[in-house]
Amino acid sequence: MKDRIAQLEDYIMKHCLWQFHSRTWDRERQNEGVLGAATKILCDEPVANETREDRCYWVDAVCLAEAFENRYPWLHEMDTAEKKLLMQGLKERIDYTTITASLNKELTDHKY
């Protein structure tokens, strides 16, 4: 599992920008929004995409889920519960890297 999370993390770090908003509260929101939606897409669950905000998470999530499915064939062999666990682990890992263990000193600046 750890190795698989690392693969997904590597993809996000290399190809995505949504996880690097400038402040802690935005990173929390972004990680939750995009990875939450991506988890639902991977698990064939409906995703809210009616509001502009939800839709913006959703488009990043659609592309992310698609990239994961195309690149990591082992994903197809997982059942929904495993996928949820995987994505939960991934979310924790991304939160850790970009927020809790981040060395970026500007994350806590209270203004943009």
Partner: peptide, 26 residues
């Protein structure tokens, strides 16, 4: 104003394609 922010890359075939796709999806 509640306008969401979508970060994109205009450089490179793959990143640009992903970016256009995201805008299209939106």
């Amino acid at each position: 104003y509640g306008i969401p922010r979508l970060d994109i890359d205009g450089f490179g075939f793959e990143p640009l394609s992903d970016s256009l796709r995201k805008v299209g999806l939106f």
